[in-house]
Every structure is written in structure tokens, then in C-alpha cells.
Design a protein around this nucleic acid. Structure first.
Ligand SMILES: NC(=O)c1ccc[n+]([C@@H]2O[C@H](COP(=O)([O-])OP(=O)(O)OC[C@H]3O[C@@H](n4cnc5c(N)ncnc54)[C@H](O)[C@@H]3O)[C@@H](O)[C@H]2O)c1
Ligand SMILES: NC(=O)c1ccc[n+]([C@@H]2O[C@H](COP(=O)([O-])OP(=O)(O)OC[C@H]3O[C@@H](n4cnc5c(N)ncnc54)[C@H](O)[C@@H]3O)[C@@H](O)[C@H]2O)c1
Lengths: 213, 213
DNA sequence: TAATATTTGTTTAATTATTCACATTGCTAA
DNA sequence: TTAGCAATGTGAATAATTAAACAAATATTA
């Protein structure tokens, strides 16, 4: 299913809705109100209803939204029908955390390979994910039709790795390295840095502290 | 230094500016143009200039911005003068990745304690950070005037840990757990989930792929 | 049965964030 | 000396995002 020009923020929230809904779905709880979803994610019920409107989902006036149906619809919109395969580059602490966190979470989005240069990690399986030497990357990516790369290797290597990923035909990159990347326009790039998050928390915590004193 | 109502996004970018500037600062390179900063972060030069305008920084028309000065000014605005101390709760893969990533990065923002329940981790020092049992948390937080907590423990424990953090007097929380939290208004909360980032990449990678086909 | 309460869906308004457009400045060099 | 160029700084315009407001629907209950 395809919906024209879904806003970036809505896409993010759809992912969050699904995650939250998967957590509360049970035999007893089959339906949910917009204000319940809103409360779980610290947003307003209007926001939720608007997002669901954008994806064309209608709820029941008395019961709210059917959780199972909604989870499925979100899947139809944000997942790719044929699934997407993911590789992690750099099997250090962060790479491992990512792999163990994803394990079994999403059927349509599977981490199926890791790459590293450390001989102790290569040709071993971590949490169900096989680790290969970085110089086999292009080959393995093409063989397995991997379309997304997560970079969790040392910062200095980032540009080089990204270039190799692009050459190998990757379509999206999630970069956890503090080095910002340049990729061609047909590759979608998302960057995340924990320091920015932490400094933001620090700034507003400080501000709050003054305000509530 | 305090500037009234700095937009959230600007605060995020100031952190990114500083990070990028720290990486390029050198004997040879003492100044930088707005378009150079912009390129590093995939934004527009106007955006950069506007942010700097908001914090009242003026550049030199021919040389651009003085990198060192700008780094210092950003510090004066987003850092707390007396520094802020941080604790990590849960010393698993993610907790370790966070600690080793932060090591020595910011003088005004220091991770000084970790908490866990695993006896093998307690009373040991990881990357310069001592790990204590979770039931010593309130005590240690107060003793060391820790004001920020990073939650990287198993999801089920999240609510309980957050409550303890708030009771112990924490002012900001960065939650990496997929369980959304509720905290009182005087505590600043930031949540991050890698699945949302990855699903966003997957969605737009898929979309790009169709568009550029 | 009629009044009440609650929730969805959607239009409109408000707010926030980004970009445009251009005046201004100061160097370079014809 | 003056035209040209490449920057910054910023008011105004535009775009994106969020929230307010309210009609419509329907179960509940007085
Ligand atoms: N953005 C964030 O929020 C964040 C948080 C923590 C760490 N990091 C960054 O993520 C990266 C990894 O952090 P970590 O704590 O896991 O580090 P780590 O040192 O534990 O792991 C890095 C891994 O990459 C491997 N490696 C080295 N060179 C490589 C190459 N050329 N190709 C593939 N693999 C290679 C190493 O063998 C190691 O296993 C670092 O760049 C760090 O700065 C980012
Ligand atoms: N948000 C994200 O992007 C993201 C990414 C990866 C992991 N995670 C989450 O972060 C958390 C940690 O992930 P991980 O891979 O490091 O897991 P992990 O199992 O490696 O580590 C968890 C650690 O928490 C400790 N712990 C257990 N109970 C505790 C308690 N009550 N108090 C303090 N510590 C306790 C464990 O002993 C262990 O050391 C998990 O909740 C995971 O879902 C989030």
C-alpha cells in the first residue's frame, strides 16, 4: 500500500504507534482509544487521529481503534512487502546492542549480516547474525539483497564504509558515528548521535531546574 | 549565559555544530564559513547563520566564524557552568557503548556512575566509570549531585527505575528503552528508539528506490 | 424518549521551523 | 577608484507541524 507524501514525523509516529500497540495487544485488550495511544507517547489525541486519518484508517466511535487491524495497516504502509534486509558494520558494543535489540522484533526487517575487521569476530555468529570480514561486504550484500546498512564502526572509517555500501547498492544508511556523511540522493541517510540527545537533556534539565526552583 | 526561548531544534543543532567544529579545529583551520558548517550537517547556510544570530554570535565577513570562539560560546549557552553529572542505569552492551563513547568527550558533562544488578558488574570499574548495585542508586546520586540519568536496562524495569531516579532528585532522563515513561513536569525526558530510526530509513529507502527506478 | 457523555473525523487556526531575498560589508583586482 | 564578488545578518514569506474547535455518531441513563 502506498500513501502519497506521508510527513516525516507521521512516519516516525506510525512506527511508534505500532511498537506501543504490539506491547499492549492482548486477549482482553483488542481496542484502543486515541487518547490512550496519545498518553503512551506523550502526544495529543488529535495528533494520533490526524495521523490515522492520513493513512485512511477509521476507528469505531464507541470502541476506538482495532489494535490488530491497525498494526497490520501500519505494516502495509511502512514495511516493504518483500521485506528488507539489513547489515550492521562494526560488531563492537554498539553493534551488538543493536543486533540483540532487533532480534526477532520485526519480520519484514531483518538484520542478516555483520561486518568487522577483528579476526576474533569474523566467521562467528552473534545472536543469530553471522559476521564476515569487511572485504566480503559487497559480495554478501549483493548475494543477499541487503538494502540497508547500519554503521557502528570507528568514526574514522565511516566515510570509506559508506562509500563501499553505496557502491554495493545499498538504499538506506543509518549512521551512529559522529562523522556526518555525504551520500548520493538516491540513498536515504539518517544520522543519530547520543551526545546531541544527552546535551539536549542537559540543557533543558538545567533550564527546568531554574524554572521550578 | 542564558538566551530566552531557544528553539528545541536550535539547541540540537548547537550541539552538532560544536561536535563538528571540534573535529575540524586545527592550527591551520581557525575559521569557518556558514556554508562549510552547513555542508557538514546537511543543512542550509541560512539555517546556520540564523542559529548563530539567535545566540548573538557575529562572524567576520571575510574569514567567517572563529571556530574556537564559537565552540566556547556554544559551551556557555548549552553547558551548565558548574557541570552536570550523569549516571547510566544498566551496564549491558548499550550501557557500555554509551560509556565508552562519552569517555573524555565533554568536560562539563561527565558520566560518573553506572548501576546494575548483575554481581559480576558491581563494584568494578568500566572505562573509568564505577558500577554500583541499583539499590545504592539514591544514595550515590545524592552524594555526587548527579542530575541526569540514562536508562539502558531491560525494558520491563524502566518505569520502576525512572521512578527511583525522580525520587532521587534527577532533573533529566534519556531513555533508550522501548517503554515510554511518565515523569513529572520538572523532569525533562528524552526518548530514543533505534527501531523508529531504522523503520524510517527502511520506509524512505523503499520510497526512494521506487522514485529513482 | 430525551438529555448526557464520549469519541471519532476533519476543517480551520496557531505555532514552529525553514527558506528566500536582499541590504550591507569589506576585500580584490581591473 | 570603482566594479565585482563572496560573505554575513535579518525581515518577510513560505512550509511543515501541531493544536483547537466542533459536527456527527452512538451508547448510556435519567
Ligand atoms: N552515535 C552514537 O550515539 C554512538 C554511541 C556509541 C558509539 N558510537 C559510535 O559507534 C561506533 C562504534 O562504537 P562501539 O562502542 O561499538 O565501538 P567498538 O570499538 O566497541 O566497536 C567498533 C567495532 O568496529 C570494528 N571495526 C574497526 N574498523 C572497522 C572497519 N573498517 N570495518 C568494519 N568494522 C570495523 C572493530 O573491530 C570493533 O569491533 C563508534 O564510531 C562510536 O563513536 C556512536
Ligand atoms: N532504544 C534503543 O535504541 C535501544 C537499542 C538497543 C537496546 N535498547 C534497550 O536498552 C536496554 C539495554 O539493552 P542492552 O542490549 O544493553 O541489554 P543487556 O541485556 O546487554 O543489558 C542490560 C543490563 O541491565 C542490567 N539490569 C537488569 N535489571 C536491572 C535493574 N533492575 N537495574 C539496573 N540494571 C539492570 C543487566 O544486568 C544488564 O547488564 C534494553 O531495554 C533494550 O531494549 C534500546
Amino acid at each position: 500500500m502506498f500513501i502519497k507524501n506521508l510527513p516525516h514525523k507521521t512516519v516516525e509516529r506510525l512506527s511508534q504507534y505500532r511498537r506501543s500497540l504490539l506491547m499492549i495487544l492482548s486477549k482482553e485488550k483488542t481496542h484502543v482509544f486515541s487518547h490512550e495511544i496519545a498518553q503512551m507517547l506523550h502526544i495529543t489525541p488529535v495528533q494520533v487521529r490526524r495521523d490515522l486519518m492520513l493513512i485512511g484508517y477509521s476507528g469505531n466511535l464507541r470502541k476506538g481503534y482495532d489494535i490488530k487491524e491497525l498494526i497490520e495497516l501500519i505494516g502495509k504502509i511502512i514495511d516493504s512487502e518483500r521485506g528488507q534486509r539489513v547489515a550492521v558494520i562494526g560488531l563492537g558494543n554498539l553493534g551488538k546492542a543493536i543486533i540483540s535489540y532487533f532480534k526477532g522484533k520485526r519480520s519484514k526487517l531483518a538484520i542478516i549480516a555483520a561486518f568487522d575487521i577483528n579476526p576474533e569476530k569474523i566467521n562467528r555468529v552473534y545472536d543469530g547474525v553471522a559476521c564476515y570480514h569487511i572485504n566480503q561486504m559487497a559480495e554478501i550484500i549483493k548475494q543477499n539483497n541487503i538494502s540497508i546498512g547500519i554503521i557502528a564502526a570507528p568514526a574514522q572509517q565511516t566515510a570509506e564504509i559508506a562509500e563501499a555500501l553505496v557502491l554495493a547498492g545499498i538504499k538506506g544508511i543509518l549512521n551512529f558515528t559522529p562523522k556526518a556523511l555525504n551520500v548520493p540522493p538516491f540513498v536515504y541517510l539518517e544520522e543519530y548521535d547520543m551526545i546531541t540527545s544527552l546535551e539536549k537533556v542537559a540543557f533543558f534539565a538545567k533550564k527546568n531546574d531554574e524554572r521550578f526552583k
